[in-house]
Each structure stands twice: as structure tokens, then as C-alpha cells.
Design a binder for these strands. Sequence first.
DNA 1: AATGAATGAGTGTTCATTCAT
DNA 2: GATGAATGAACACTCATTCAT
Lengths: 215, 215, 215, 215
Amino acid sequence: MTEEKNIFKQLFDQEETLTDKQQKIVEAAIEMFAEKGYASTSTSQIAKKAGVAEGTIFRHYKTKKDLLLSIVSPTMAKLIAPFVIRDLNKVLDAKYDRYEDFLKAMILNRQEFLKENMTAFKILIQEIPFHPELKEQFKEHIAEKVIEKFVRLVDHYKEKGQIIDLPSYTVVRFSATSIFGLLLVRYLFLPEADWDDEKEIDMTVQMIVNGIGKG
Amino acid sequence: MTEEKNIFKQLFDQEETLTDKQQKIVEAAIEMFAEKGYASTSTSQIAKKAGVAEGTIFRHYKTKKDLLLSIVSPTMAKLIAPFVIRDLNKVLDAKYDRYEDFLKAMILNRQEFLKENMTAFKILIQEIPFHPELKEQFKEHIAEKVIEKFVRLVDHYKEKGQIIDLPSYTVVRFSATSIFGLLLVRYLFLPEADWDDEKEIDMTVQMIVNGIGKG
Amino acid sequence: MTEEKNIFKQLFDQEETLTDKQQKIVEAAIEMFAEKGYASTSTSQIAKKAGVAEGTIFRHYKTKKDLLLSIVSPTMAKLIAPFVIRDLNKVLDAKYDRYEDFLKAMILNRQEFLKENMTAFKILIQEIPFHPELKEQFKEHIAEKVIEKFVRLVDHYKEKGQIIDLPSYTVVRFSATSIFGLLLVRYLFLPEADWDDEKEIDMTVQMIVNGIGKG
Amino acid sequence: MTEEKNIFKQLFDQEETLTDKQQKIVEAAIEMFAEKGYASTSTSQIAKKAGVAEGTIFRHYKTKKDLLLSIVSPTMAKLIAPFVIRDLNKVLDAKYDRYEDFLKAMILNRQEFLKENMTAFKILIQEIPFHPELKEQFKEHIAEKVIEKFVRLVDHYKEKGQIIDLPSYTVVRFSATSIFGLLLVRYLFLPEADWDDEKEIDMTVQMIVNGIGKG
DNA sequence: AATGAATGAGTGTTCATTCAT
DNA sequence: GATGAATGAACACTCATTCAT
């Protein structure tokens, strides 16, 4: 999994350059966008919460939407980062014999990421419907590249005889919605409930694999 | 399923009383709220699209939020209507021997509803995060009543020996997210794709049942 | 004082023709105009309070301002009625030998009227500053006719040797503001206080007469 | 009277801090509120008259009512300032042997103030009936403190044998309405008439003192 | 880099008035 | 005569953005 770390660094370490005030602006914006939505959060509220002057926001971000994108675009990029590495199959081959193991590893990895970026992720999914640029990014990167990669991956495990003969796209959809269903319920709908994460993930992987696996 | 139809009628046919202009206002609002979001849609835009004066909106709805709720609350109510009938288990007993059959019937039924109320449903899920009243309604009705009913239902099929020994709540979550995953992908993410709905549903049911069923 | 009664009837008994609804509208308007002011009272609020439809108001009064004037103009007319009778001096001669007696009679008479028309009177003095028509009426009738009559009246008692040698206009101003001062404090500022009206009037008349009288 | 001047300065010279635009806004507001009334003056009209953008008004005053109060509250405070100094009696004792002298000094002093603040004072008395906060301030400061002080003052001159044996409250009312009657007629009703202020004041004081004085 | 006063278009809402029923 | 749905101009107020300091 060190490869992914590298990719992260490679792609996103520009954020180290944020000034102190900028950092506060971004934090305030994340908190408020998540809570009230982008459209219902005013720049003056963000400025007040961040403890800076209104003008300061526009010194760093040309427009309010720029501020949103500066939060949401990197989040989307990081979210899908594990899938955009070259030769993903090779990595998987070397590491995970079984679809089951791959699934579990991936869930754990993405869970780790979501746990730390929950608020930004919440903004991402809340705002995608309202911003064509975000929809575009989403389509281009997720709906096309990630899904395609995931499909090839399912084909890979199919060839190994681990997955039953359903259309790969359907298997991907089922796997993906099961995983995201778990993570959304866990972190968005009922974050305060008392979860045994390890066990819940295991059961979910078991159900998915039972669902699509060859006995 | 005639019982449900009756309940629908019983509960929601007050909407026949909408005046002509009111109807146009609601239609325009649904379209625009879904597209740009509640907060980014102005009442003047709605009025223009509906072909009425702006004041007319406020003659029928005290506030803009009232207009939103008049769209979204009934949608939520109708969405969960099948689950709030008394003696759901009896109905199921009489009709569906197998969890599989129940699942399929339910998906088909809810799919029918969603197909006709897609736009309002889209607004519902988009706006829930931003409106405490909606969150409250959602929690009270879905998170509590519907899930509880669903859990009892899973218990019911467990007793019949059809479902493996996993926590009922986990089974419900898995079933529900699989179903909603299907419907969301089908109707929200990729509505324009060429779907063989019947087949896709069958496959999904099969995967769920494989996932949680006893051999 | 029967002459005045006649004048009242003569001038203002058109109000008997008010329909039931119209009566309610006027009552509601008087109450609300007095409390919140003309500009801050909406016709819809008046309609609601009167229990009629908004349109009904405009059936009886072409505009909102018409409604105001229908309340305020007659009130002003009635207020000054005692002064517009012809041959006022003759009446006074016949009845009041002393300025003192005249003053007391007049205060008692106007007090009676104000007690019964307090609310409309309140509207009158509150709205005069904002409506040129009212200002005009006020100037034309009060500032010109009534004052002129009052001045002649003071001249009359001066000739009788009852009033010291100050400009009549000054004496009128002093008398009038003393009287209105009493009535305003009594009925507008501190209506709830415990007043011995008879005594207060007597003392006030005494002070005025001392102030301007010849020992 | 230098003591009062000091108090004025002390209490109200914070207004020097008004920015240029703010000053213009206040001036425009004063002019328009006086002419058309608070409720009938729109913020856009004020902005236009002041030569600023409408938003600028709300940068300095949270609400339209705030703007009103920023004009009217200090005016009320300044108006009653001479009465709130400690040891008013001592001051009077040292300076004015006779009630007559005190009255004249006070009228001259308040006349000076009113002459310079006529418009704001007009707003004050016009708007008091419509704004509970103002009524409250008025009651608390004028109806209670100032009147009470005035009553004690009359008692003071009574003890000196200068005032006849009428209830002090009645004497105060009579004095006050005579004075305000003069000033209102002079500056509000007939400001354009040709007045000999000095003489008018002298005559008024004479009438009051005759009215309540011991021969 | 940071400020915050200033902007003016735009917001949701209210208004007096009209008119078909 | 009475209604109340409909109007659109006007309202108080907010907004993202600019710019002189």
C-alpha cells in the first residue's frame, strides 16, 4: 500500500503551502458547507468563523465557488486515488489471491480515509448534484475510469473462477453499493451508534462474496 | 398489494384540491429544486417558470420552505407507505413464502413509485441534510418505524430458516443498501443508460439472497 | 348646548347609513390605526380583524387613504363643531358672564366628546403630520377659523375687563395649550391614572384665569 | 448652566465617530422620517437621498429600526439631560431665587436645544406612539424621573412660599404643558410666523407664574 | 498580505388594489 | 354586495465581490 501513499504525496502535497489564515478559512468553510450547504453559507459567516476579514477570503480564492472546489476536488481525487495507480492488477495479484481479501483491504483502506475526511466527503456528495463542474469531474473520473478499472478487476477474479457468471458491471455495482452503503450508514446516517467496525466489515464482505461468489 | 393502494388513496388524495396555478407552481418548483437545489432556486424564478406572479406563490405557501415541505413531506410519506400498514407480516405470510419473493415484489413496487416521483424523490434526498425538520421526519419515520418493521420481517424469514445467522440489523442494512443502490444507480446516476430492468432486479435479488440465504 | 347637538346631527348623521360590514371595517381600522399607525396597518389585517374579505374594504373605500379620511375628517369636524356655530358670541353672552365659566363649560363639553372618540382623535393627531390633506384641513379649519373665533372671543372678555392686556393671540395660545395639555395628559398619556376629573378641571381653569385674569 | 454643558459633552460626544457616509445617511434619514414618518420612508429612498448604496445603510445599522433609534434615543437623552444632573436643587438654589427665574432660564435653554434639534425632536414625538421601545424609554425617563424631579422642584419653591397650595403634580403638569405648548406652537405648528421669542417667553412665564403664584 | 467599508443586484415576503365569480 | 385569488411593484435586508488603505 506504499504505492498509494506516494501517489497521495505526489498529487496533493501542495496543501502544505496554506498560510495560517487560509487554513482557518478552509476549516471554517468545511464545517459550514457540510452543515448548511454551500448555497446557504455566506462568505461573511465563513469569515467570521475563521476570524478573518471578508476580503481575505477573496484574496486567496477568486470566488466563493473556488473555495468550494479547493475543498471538494482534492477530496474526490484522494478518494479514488487507490484506483488510479497503474498496474493495479499486478499489485492485487501480488497481494490478494482472493476477491474477498481485496475487498476487505479496500474497505479498510477507504474507511481510514473517510474517517479522517468525513466532513469534506459529506460536502462532496451533497454538492455534486448542484454543480456541473463537480458532476463532470465525477463522471470523468469515477463513472468512467474507476468503474472501468473495477470491471477489469472483477473480470480478473472471474477468470480465477471466484465470481459467478453475472455481467461484470452488475457485480461491480452490487459490490460498490454494498460497500458504500456500509460506509454511508456507518459514518453519515448513524455515526453515533455503537459499531464493531471490524465485525461489520467482515460480515459485509462475507455477504457480498456469498452473493457473487462461486460456492 | 391492493391494501397499499387503498392506504395511498386514503392518506394522500387531498392533493386533488390544488388549483390550476398552484399546480403550475408546484411543478415548476419540483423541476427547479431538483436541478439547482432549494437554496439556489429563487421564488422569482419559480414564478417565472410557472407563469404566475411572484405574489401568487405566497398566497398558497406562507414561505418558500412551506413550498418545499409541501413537495417533500408527502413524497416521504408515500415512499414508506407500504411499510406502515398494520399486520405487514400477515400480508407477507399470505403472499410470499420466500424472502426472495418478498424482496422482488417490494423492489418492483417501489421502483414503480420512484419512476413516477423521481424528481421529488431527488429533492428529498438532496435536501434532507440541510433541513432539520426533514431530518427529524426522516429519523422518526424511516430510521425508526420502517427499519424496525424491516428487522421484524427479517426475523420472520429467519425463523423460517431462510436467512443465515447474522444480526438482523446487519441483514436489513445489507438488503436495503443493495436495493437502494440499485434504484439510485438506475434512476439517479445513470438514468439514460439502456437497462433491462426486469433482469437487473432479478440478478440483484439473487445476489442478495445468495449473500444472506441458507444454501 | 342644544344648538351644538343640532349641528352635530346636521353635519354628520350620514354615518347612520353604514352597512353592517362597513361598520365592522371602520371599527377595526380605528383600532388598528390608533395602535400601529396608518402606514403600518395593512388592509389585509383590517379585513381579518373586521371579519370581511379584503375586497370588501375597497368596495366601500376607493383606497386605503379614503378609509383613513372617513375616520379622521368627521372627527376633526366634530371636534371643532362648537366653534363654527354662527353668533357664538351671542350664545356666550347669554350663557357665560365670565371667561372662567365659558372655559369650564367648554372643557367639560370637549372632554365629553374626547372620552367617546378618544381612539379616532388619537389617530387624528398622530396622522396629521404625515398627510398633507389633513394638514390642509387642520390649517383651514382650526388654525384659521377656530383660532380667529377664539381670538374674537378673548377680545370680547377683554372688553369686559376680565383679561389682562396681553396680545389676544398669546392669551388664546396659552388657554388652548393649557386645556389641550390637560386633556392629552388625562386621556392619552396617563389614561389609567386615578383622576378626579371635576377637581382637575377646576384647578386648571383657576390657573388659567389667574394667569391671564385681572385680579 | 456650565454644569449641564459638561454633562452634554460627557454623555453624547461619541457621535463624533460617524463616518462621512454614515453622517449622510443619518441626515437623510432625519429629514425623511420627519417629513413622511418612519413607516412611510423606505431605506432605498434614504439611500438615494444620502447618495449611498442601500447596502451601506445596513452596514452601519443592523435594521431600519436601529437607524431610527440611533436618531431618536440620543435626542430624548439630550432633551432631558438638564433634569438628570445630581443636586439639581442646589444648582437652582444657587442660581434662581424665584420659580419665575428658573422657568425662564429653562425655557431659554430648552428652546436653544430644540431650535437646533427640531427635526429629530419632531421624529421623536411623532414616532413614540408606534414603538413600544420608545414608549418604554419615554416612560422610564420622562414620566418617572423627570416628572419626579420637577415635582420636588415645585415643592422646593412651595416651601419658599412662591407657589399656591395646589397639588404639586398639577402645578407641574400645568407648567410643563404651558412650556411645551409654547415651544410646539412656536417651532412645529407655526415656525414660519414672525415671533418675538424673548417677549413671547416673558409673557408665558408671567402667565404661568400668575396662574400658580402667590400674589 | 490583510482589511473592512462600500456596492448594487438579488432575496423572500408584503402590499394595496383589481376583477371574475 | 361580497368574495378572495391574482397581481407586480415595493419592501427591508443579504449577498458575493471590489478596492483604497
